[in-house]
């Protein structure tokens, strides 16, 4: 039997219309931080909801540490913790009571040491006695992270955990995620913040219209698909870029005072600068920009990263 933390094979789902997840196959090794990216409507949340058991599987299989999440759903769910994208709370209870209840739902006897660790690390201590509806949005998100972890899952799923949260929480969250990852918890996360994904994830999958369009190590993905850019600050504003630079897909900005050139993999910066000088352009400053995940995302999906794109409610 598979030892993969998560093994998704030929996964499909539709809600009576076009497929929102279409023949998706991917796997996550134990101990990985894995990013699942894609524009709105790509099928990320539907995929995650099928893994978590919130959405029925249309076709294919999902195994969590070797346990089929339909046939062995009790074990599969014990192994999984989910922080949903939407804020989901029960207004009747305080943070402390709700955490005890959630541990109980998973058949786990309350562990005060672990519960208190979560409360302290996520800054919930001053708010323990408050009922949920009196908490701010940020505190609710912190509580949801604690809730996802209270039964000590081996696979933690974070669906847009930093959407609409402040810098402090974002920092706290990623620090804590790295910490529990080093302790052996596998992480699957979706985020619209591609920079975060680039920094956090060992591997990245990109979905578009329910299909997988990329699945690679983050470093390989940026190296293979990404292109370096040469950013030049010019002494005098340029209105028209000389034809001799056309092959570098030139882009003017800052009222003609900034010129960006896209480099081929084997381009030599010195040679390009010689061509620029030969064209009579005086350069004040030079900067090279390494490929970013955002560029690749744009290239693979054809949609501006983080701009929301079309929304199919996935």
């Amino acid at each position: 039997m598979s030892c993969l933390a998560l093994d998704i094979r030929n996964l499909e789902k539709n809600y009576g219309g076009p497929k929102v997840v279409d023949d998706l196959t991917l796997s996550i090794e134990p101990g990985e931080i894995f990013g699942l990216l894609g524009p709105n409507g790509a099928g990320k949340s539907t995929t995650i909801n099928m893994v978590a058991g919130v959405t029925r599987i249309g076709g294919g299989t999902i195994s969590i540490f070797g346990y089929d999440n339909r046939r062995d759903y009790r074990t599969a769910r014990r192994l999984t913790g989910v922080m949903h994208q939407e804020i989901v709370i029960d207004n009747f209870f305080s943070i402390e009571r709700a955490l005890k209840i959630h541990a109980g739902y998973f058949g786990v006897v309350d562990d005060p040491a672990w519960r208190n660790l979560l409360i302290d690390r996520l800054g919930l201590r001053p708010h323990l006695g408050k009922v949920m509806f009196k908490l701010s949005g940020g505190l609710k998100r912190r509580f949801m992270i604690a809730k996802a972890l209270v039964h000590k899952p081996r696979l933690l799923i974070l669906d847009e955990p930093t959407a609409g949260v402040d810098v402090e929480l974002r920092h706290t969250l990623w620090e804590f995620v790295r910490e529990i990852n080093t302790q052996g918890t596998t992480i699957l996360l979706t985020t619209h913040y591609l920079e975060e994904a680039e920094q956090m994830c060992d591997r990245i999958a990109i979905m578009h219209h329910g299909k997988l369009v990329a699945l690679e190590k983050t470093t390989d993905l940026t190296a293979r698909h990404g292109q370096r850019h040469l950013e030049l600050t010019l002494k005098e504003a340029l209105t028209v870029v000389p034809d001799t630079l056309a092959q570098f897909s030139p882009r003017l900005s800052n009222d003609g005072l900034a010129l960006e050139l896209t480099l081929a993999t084997d381009s030599v910066v010195g040679e390009i600068l010689d061509r620029v000088r030969a064209a009579g352009i005086e350069v004040v400053d030079v900067d090279t920009r390494q490929p970013h995940l955002e560029d690749i995302f744009l290239q693979l999906t054809g949609i501006g990263a983080g701009n929301g794109g079309e929304n199919h409610g996935a």
Partner: peptide
């Protein structure tokens, strides 16, 4: 596989219901 389940806290099958 069993290793990961062994690392989970003990499971009380009636606790979800009682909770």
């Amino acid at each position: 596989m069993a290793h990961d389940v062994d690392r989970l806290p003990p499971f009380n099958r009636w606790l979800p219901f009682l909770t």
